[in-house]
């Protein structure tokens, strides 16, 4: 099977996944207690006014009918409008997405810049002080929840030391203030990812370094540097890229908390706000968007295998 046929097949597979996700999202959201009409109109609203609004939003129809209405609108590219501001959901996502993308990509870049060299060095210098120190740091990175790390960063660097802004997203004030405002959230979001990737790189490197073809490379008379660079790293990265790819999705989930803590106007904070207000169309639209990113990343990771590993063919 060639590349394009494989790609088409993967897209076809994604369709049932999407239908499933849509049903799950829709049902879960409607299981959340609370009435959006009540939330919009406030405690003082009369029961008649609430009824009228529920009628307008189709909230009195049976759940399956509400689902079908929403689902067919989504198929036509209409994700609905915010119950509160009447803004189209797609517009909200488009306006908030750059913030989230900047945050997650910076967190990803930060964590890979740490994880790859530290993981490789840790594996090569196994059981030395360098290795022990980096493993302890990695364990801390995995154990500390990113929202707590974010709060500590805000208190230490934002409030006491005043080195960096404690929140916000300041690219509108120029590039430098923008980057400054990005450092704390990117580091606190990327810490877990850096730690987990570093452990993955380390264990994968250790495994490859035990392989006999590494000895073969040494016996050929290659310098150790070259053995590691050209024989070990390339082989070690096959599993690493899988894990990194799949974990990239978790960065999005982490961004929800990070944006909330650092008060960044991204889609993550939008989701939290929408949940508080029971703004169903926004919640559904955003979660469907997250799901799309996950599915997309999965397909990309699968496609990358064949480039990395000659043993794998598309089938």
């Amino acid at each position: 099977m060639n590349f394009w046929a494989y790609l088409a097949k993967r897209f076809l597979h994604a369709i049932p996944v999407y239908i499933g996700i849509s049903i799950v999202i829709f049902s879960l959201i409607h299981l959340i207690p609370g009435d959006p009409a009540q939330a919009v109109l406030g405690d003082a609203a009369t029961p008649e006014a609430i009824q009228a609004l529920r009628e307008q939003w189709n909230l009195n129809e049976p759940l399956w009918e509400q689902f079908l209405i929403w689902f067919f609108n989504v198929l036509q590219g209409d994700f609905g409008r915010s119950l509160h501001t009447n803004q189209p959901v797609s517009e909200i996502i488009a306006s908030r997405l750059p913030v989230t993308l900047t945050l997650t990509v910076s967190a990803l870049v930060f964590s890979l810049l740490i994880a790859l060299p530290v993981g490789i060095i840790s594996a090569i210098k196994r059981n030395t002080l360098t290795d022990h120190v980096s493993r302890v740091i990695a364990l801390l990175g995995i154990s500390i929840p990113n929202f707590w790390l974010g709060l500590v960063f805000i208190i230490v660097f934002g409030v006491y030391l005043r080195w960096l802004p404690p929140g916000g997203f300041h690219f509108n004030k120029g590039f430098v203030p923008g980057v400054m405002s990005l450092i704390l959230p990117a580091v606190s979001l990327g810490a877990f990812f850096a730690a987990i990737s570093m452990r993955m790189v380390r264990s994968s490197m250790l495994e490859v370094m035990r392989k006999e073809y590494i000895e073969t490379a040494r016996a050929k008379g290659l310098a150790e540097r070259w053995v590691i660079r050209s024989h070990a790293i390339k082989n070690a990265f096959i599993p690493v890229i899988t894990v990194i790819g799949l974990q990239t999705g978790t960065l999005l989930a982490g961004a929800v908390l990070t944006e909330t803590i650092f008060f960044m106007p991204g889609i993550g904070r939008e989701l939290i706000t929408a949940m508080a207000k029971r703004d169903f169309p926004i919640i559904q639209g955003l979660i469907l968007f997250f799901a799309t990113v996950y599915v997309g990343i999965n397909i990309l990771v699968d496609l990358s295998y064949a480039f990395l590993n000659p043993k794998i063919e598309y089938s």
């Binding site: 006999e212 073809y213 000895e215 073969t216 390339k234 082989n235 590993n309 000659p310 043993k311």
Partner: peptide, 10 residues
């Protein structure tokens, strides 16, 4: 000894 593991698969 092992012709399987002594060649770099890539």
């Amino acid at each position: 000894q092992d012709p399987y593991s002594s060649l770099n698969p890539r």
